[in-house]
Computed example of a mutant assay.
Amino acid sequence: MRVEIWSDIACPWCYIGKARFEKGLAAFAHRDRVEVVFRSFELDPHSDPARAVPVVEMLARKYGRTLDEARAMEEHVAATAHAEGLSYLLDGRDHGNTFDIHRLLHLAAARGRQDALLDLAFRTHFADERSVFDPEVLIGIAVGAGLDGAEARAVLADPTAYADEVRADEREAAELGANAVPFFVLDRKYGISGGQPAEVFTRALEQAWAGREVEEPEAGAEACEADGACAVH
Rank of each mutant, 00 (worst) to 15 (best):
P12M: 02
R51Q: 06
F122M: 04
G228F: 06
E75N: 06
V181I: 15
G24T: 05
V53T: 08
V3D: 09
D169P: 09
G211F: 10
T98F: 01
E165V: 14
R203E: 15
W6K: 09
A221F: 08
D158Y: 13
F28A: 09
Y190T: 12
G112P: 03
Y15F: 14
A19H: 12
A116W: 01
F183I: 10
D164I: 04
D227W: 07
F21I: 06
Q207R: 14
C224L: 10
V200Y: 13
Y162P: 07
A221G: 11
E172Y: 09
K62V: 00
A219T: 08
A198G: 10
L59H: 01
S131E: 09
R61P: 00
G149I: 11
H76Y: 05
M58R: 05
E218I: 00
P54W: 01
E57V: 02
D48V: 08
C230S: 07
I5R: 07
V143C: 10
A60H: 03
E222F: 11
E4T: 12
S87R: 11
V56K: 03
A150Y: 10
R123Q: 12
L117W: 07
A174V: 15
D128V: 05
T202V: 10
G24A: 04
A168T: 15
G85S: 05
V132F: 05
P159Q: 13
V132Q: 04
V3S: 07
R203M: 13
R2V: 15
A219S: 10
G195M: 10
A229I: 00
L118V: 05
P12G: 01
S47W: 02
H95S: 03
E199V: 13
D134E: 14
A210K: 14
K18Q: 04
L117H: 04
F133G: 08
G195D: 14
E199N: 14
P159V: 12
R51P: 01
S47C: 00
L90T: 01
V132G: 07
P197R: 12
E75W: 04
H102C: 00
A142S: 15
I192N: 07
E129Y: 04
V181P: 14
A127N: 11
A109I: 00
E175I: 14
F184H: 15
F41Q: 07
V77E: 01
D48W: 10
L86I: 06
L156K: 11
D48H: 09
K18I: 00
K18G: 00
R39K: 15
R203S: 14
R113Q: 09
T160Q: 15
S40V: 06
E218L: 11
G228W: 04
E136M: 09
L105D: 01
P54I: 00
L67D: 02
E216W: 02
F41A: 05
P197F: 12
V132D: 04
K62N: 03
M58N: 03
